[in-house]
Design a protein around this nucleic acid. Sequence first.
DNA 1: GGTCGGGGCGCG
DNA 2: AAAGCGCGCCCCGACC
Length: 579
Amino acid sequence: MRVAVAAGAGGSALLCELREDGSPRDGLVHVNDLSTAVADYELAGPVRWVWASGVGLYPSLLQAGQRVARCHDVELAERLLLGRDGQVGGFASSLPPDRAARGTAQETLFDPADAAPPDLTGTLDALIAAHADQLRRIAADDHPARFGMLVAAESAGGLVAAEMSFAGLPWRTDVHDSLLAGLLGPRPPAVPAGGRPPRLAELAARIDEAFGGRRVNPDSPAQLIRAFAADGVRVPSTRFSVLRDVDHPAAPLLIEYKELARMHAAHGWAWMDSWVSGGRFRPEYVVGGVVSGRWASRGGGALQIPKVLRRAVVADPGWALVVADAAQLEPRVLAALAGDRAFAEAAASGDLYLALAGVFGGDRAKAKIALLSAMYGGAGGEAGQLLSVLRQRFPLASRYVEAAARAGQEGHVVRSVLGRTCPPPSAAWRAITEESGDPDSERDPGAGAASRARGRFTRNFVVQASAADWALVLLAGLRRRLALISLPDGDSGARLTPQASVPPQASVPPVAGVTRMAGPHLVFFQHDEVIVHCPESLVEPVVAAIGEAGEEAGRLVFGATPVRFPLTTAVVSCYGDAK
DNA sequence: GGTCGGGGCGCG
DNA sequence: AAAGCGCGCCCCGACC
């Protein structure tokens, strides 16, 4: 059953049960406490909540201790549908936003006395109409089952994202601090604006010396290029790959400085102060934030955490981290997409590149370069030669990516396996690449480059976006399975319990208002990798759930294929020990 | 005073 | 060894 919900003020809401086609079954029901109503429905039987936006509504439910099993997220679905139908831009919502949640600050700023009563009935009616319309548009797709699965998976992704933000990634600030101190020297008592920690200040001074006493800001590429030039060294840029080959005493110092400065600026003590609280790193995930369907994040750079900082991700006492990684996901996705039999059979093995090494004179590294070049559009170095080998031995796989590239170059859109569509070319791109009707006017000199760049984009899109489809279905299936794993006390499900009911924890002092999950739950997702935080006693069923979810995702997304999508799982107490 | 593009680099 | 794809965030410096 589907139930449409529009949240009102103070935890109240308006609900309406829907028929399968999305039309309202009976009248609207007003409830004073949405979380109680949700709990009743969830216990009564399978229900899919239909809401305007999970980002707006779900966090307040989680805060109230209530999770849901399934939803249809109208905002996320609309973006998929608009993309499919070639609309540019995001969801120009005709729906009034839900009153609840969208930041508590907003609500407290509101004075109920002088605010007009929200037209909740109108909001719910509009939501119901929008949802029914989406069901019709999904049914009208060339592949309605697949596109429907994409909408369901995207919606489930919205639930996972909110739950992961709520639960947070276990983060030991003491470990983080000692890592930083080891690299940068002890934390300065109060960092003045522009001030540097000891190790960085020392390096900056030595860089000045290396330039003969000239004062140079090592954070300024322009100043550095001028300083090198003054010493007779011409460098095109100051990136690592250039500095590595520069013969000047400042070069090695700069390489060291840049590495440490980045750690300090992007993931240093200020980052810790802003993003870690109560022993948890709580980023905001943006579902579908990348055109390919990958997630993006807002704040804290959650998807770019440096590998060295994984030491700070430590399970709570008595708990474990189960880290699972889809091995060589993208080439496997290409194998399944293209239906290239020889290629797919190679992808049935554990190490895809090794299985293909024989084709490239027994060299695994060459097999890897060939495949990455095929998926990314690279042609430099020996890639060209390896690609022609690939083309001979696996013509279907080669043709698949080349057809995608051609479509992009010609200005068409391409779709992932479940039907996520890439953006159409911009007006600027069309203007550059368009053949002019006037025979006297020259074609834009950048036309070829722009066309090829878009070809590389669409070539990569079909693979990256289909991999994202698979990962999203995996995530949804894993979330569902984790909720069914029984807790030792007989409870089931990833429940939310107040901090007070959890035994005191040495590493994570109780914090007022902080809640902890009681069962296995997802705490991290990064494109092809997930982390589950679970009680040590439940490691076994969690590992099994991950395997089953991976199996199921391959079957649901790609149907019958010999291609396997193996997940390597590591059970660790510290993320730094995985892999 | 703020905004914005580029350089650079972290992740997949 | 490097490059081909997708992002977010930092700093700088030009600009309004």
